[in-house]
């Protein structure tokens, strides 16, 4: 019996000691089977027909590297028409902290038009050159723009923006809003003028193409400020559509200090290329689930050969502006004003 007890004791001790190591968990020193990381150019570029080329260039980092490396200083940017002329080719200095640059449309030899395909090449010392292409989308005008109070939500304006989705093509859209507030104070003639780009609450069902993913660290996706203000024409293809936008009344000005408060909202509708739509969708989705251990990994969209990122294009904007005083519509007009009064 004594020998049994000895065996049991030894086995139990060995078991308990080994149980300390049942789970070995580590977050460092991972051998990735020798998979090397070759740093690539990361390009985010959008060609706005109204403005020109906005470009952000960075480098990819291995996931173990310190991400606080300085931005790249200078890159060579070449923009050509597919099968046609070179529109721009020059060294471009990137913002020292942002890594961004802007090439005005006025710098281009000629302006590309709807339906034309642009090729963007970016070169930088120490990296493989990268290239991507985009086809400029068709402009879609706003037919009608109106405003009412939302019956179900007090202190809320409901804007209705009507447009015709072109038939026989797949279209993608981006929508944005600029708010101008003009306040006329009681004690002198100065006017307070505040301009801000505001986040549109995405209540219209057209935006529900994005799934309502709930994550452990962010709010439900439907309510997220991360949700992109883009939508495809899938449910409205070739039809006229009235998109509804709910915007709360301006309440952060103290009425007692001002005689009059007028607010101007400019709603802009852009057609965007498929590449831009896919890229926005992918980036926004990655941002909202970043760090969430319960979420499935997201493979990132890229149309840049030899690199990561995207090159997309945006049609000339179609915009309507509405000027309101409290809930009274003062004026609705095309485009927008940079200056009022």
């Amino acid at each position: 019996m004594k020998q049994y007890l000895l065996i049991i004791l030894l086995a139990t001790i060995a078991t308990l000691v080994s149980c300390e190591k049942i789970l070995d968990y580590t977050t460092t020193q991972i051998d990735y089977n020798g998979v090397p990381h070759k740093s690539m150019l990361v390009v985010s570029a959008r060609y706005y027909c109204d403005l020109g080329l906005k470009i952000h260039v960075d480098r990819s980092l291995s996931i173990a590297e310190n991400p606080n490396l300085p931005p790249l200083a200078q890159v060579k940017v070449t923009l050509t028409k597919k099968g046609g002329a070179t529109l721009f080719s020059n060294l471009v200095t990137l913002g020292s902290t942002s890594g961004k640059a802007f090439i005005s449309k006025d710098s281009l030899i000629e302006l590309p038009t709807e339906g034309e395909t642009l090729i963007l090449s970016v070169e930088c010392n120490g990296f493989d050159p990268v290239e991507g292409e985009t086809t400029i989308p068709q402009t879609v005008p706003i037919n009608n723009f109106s405003v009412t109070g939302n019956e179900s939500k007090s202190n809320t304006f409901q804007f209705t923006l009507n447009f015709d989705d072109p038939a026989n093509s797949t279209n993608y859209y981006f929508i944005s809003s600029v708010e101008h507030t003009f306040a006329y104070p009681t004690w002198n003639n100065d006017t307070t003028h505040n301009i801000q780009r505001i986040t549109i609450p995405l209540t219209d069902p057209i935006f529900s193409f994005m799934p309502d993913f709930r994550t452990s660290i962010h709010e439900p996706f439907n309510n997220s400020i991360y949700k992109p203000r883009i939508f495809p024409d899938t449910p409205i293809s070739g039809k006229s559509y009235s998109l509804k936008i709910d915007i709360p009344e301006k309440t952060d000005y103290q009425q007692t200090l001002y005689d009059t408060i007028e607010t101007e909202y400019t709603i802009e509708l852009f057609s965007i290329s498929k590449e831009l739509f896919e890229a926005y969708k992918s980036i926004y989705l990655a941002e909202i689930v970043a760090g969430d251990i319960y979420s499935e990994p997201i493979t990132q969209y890229s149309n840049m050969s030899n690199g990561i990122g995207f090159f997309g294009s945006v049609s000339p904007r179609a915009s309507k502006t509405i000027r309101l005083e409290k809930n009274r519509v003062l004026e609705v007009f095309n485009g927008y004003t940079d200056f009022h009064y």
């Binding site: 990361v42 990819s60 980036i283 941002e287 493979t299 990132q300």
Partner: peptide, 21 residues
Amino acid sequence: MPAYSIKTFNTNEAIFIYTTK
């Protein structure tokens, strides 16, 4: 596993990039 991390153009925050599943 992400192949890279990049800073996004809109928030300038690092996100991890999965290239293929």
